[in-house]
Simulated assay, not measured.
Amino acid sequence: MDTIGEKLKKDRIEKGLTIGDLQRITKIQRRYLEAIEENDFDALPSDYYTRTFVRQYAEAVGQNPRPLLRRLEGKPENPNDLAIADPVKGSRKSKYDQTSRSKTFVRNYLPVTLLLLLVLAIFGTVIYAILLDSEQGPLIPTPEKTTVVKSEESSSVAQSEKTETSSSEETTETTKKEKEKEKTKELKVTEVLDSPQSVKYTLKSSASPHEIEFKGLDGPAWIGIQESGTTNMFYQYTLQPGETVTAEIPEEYDDVDIVVGASNNLSIGVEGKLLPFNKKNPVTGKKIVTLGFEGTKENKD
């Protein structure tokens, strides 16, 4: 007949478990498990732990521990102990921890749940009261008909003031539009050169100083303005999509170079007229737009 240790070891191997697996299941130290398999029960801390460890070992490998405990105590076998116990799943400590966590969860979240239910009940009561009041109508009923009494003199004065204000605004707007149209008519643009790298225009205009309008399109674009033939850059800006900025050309400059990065991401207008600088030879990168102004000096003289 196999000893207690031999029987337990054989059952463990049949279950396909290693000593390490058994240690994780029972939470018993490896040296104690090895001592049980070697029947070295003196290596265990006490008789109590010997009985406890043997019981846990047997239950872990699916064996009924009672016959083994009777043999351990030197008692004869009992036919009633033949039933096989279900294997344990975890140690007593893990079961205690699980129960403790459940109690802690209930203790922590039950007050919050009750408070939430109370808030919902109050909120529902307020909504019900509002609906009830709306069905009964407003506290101060709105009169079916409102009569406004106004003297003829005050009405006439107000109408006159309104007419004068409207007429003044229309006159100002009309004057502004006429000036813009006249300004655009005065500007004459002549294309001198158009290549993928550079474009040159001659502009005849009596306006001074000249204003250049840049408008962002689909992406950001960099702008730099300098006197033609020099590196004297007097204006730099990074234009964002949808943004519009205006740059003023100093009166002493007759020719300027507009250095543009990401040419397809902006439009250029001079005194209200757009320049098709990137239409014939479109590029997505750098381009130099040269503007030569004529008529400014004659206008100043």
Rank of each mutant, 00 (worst) to 15 (best):
D11C: 08
D11P: 00
T18W: 04
D21H: 14
R24N: 06
T26W: 13
Q29K: 12
R30A: 12
L33F: 04
E37R: 10
E38T: 00
E38A: 03
E38L: 04
N39H: 08
D42F: 01
L44M: 07
L44E: 04
Y49Q: 07
T50Q: 15
R51F: 06
V54H: 05
Y57D: 12
E59W: 00
N64A: 05
N64P: 02
P65Y: 09
R70E: 02
R70T: 00
L72R: 03
G74E: 01
N80L: 01
A85I: 09
D86T: 15
K89R: 13
G90T: 12
S91V: 07
S91W: 09
S91M: 09
R92K: 11
K93G: 06
K93N: 13
Y96F: 13
V106W: 13
R107L: 10
L115T: 03
L116N: 11
A121R: 05
I122N: 05
G124R: 00
A129Q: 14
I130Y: 10
S134Q: 15
G137D: 06
L139F: 02
L139R: 01
I140K: 12
P143S: 01
P143N: 00
K145T: 08
K145G: 01
T146G: 12
T146Y: 03
V148L: 12
V148T: 08
V148D: 05
V148F: 14
V149T: 12
K150R: 11
K150N: 03
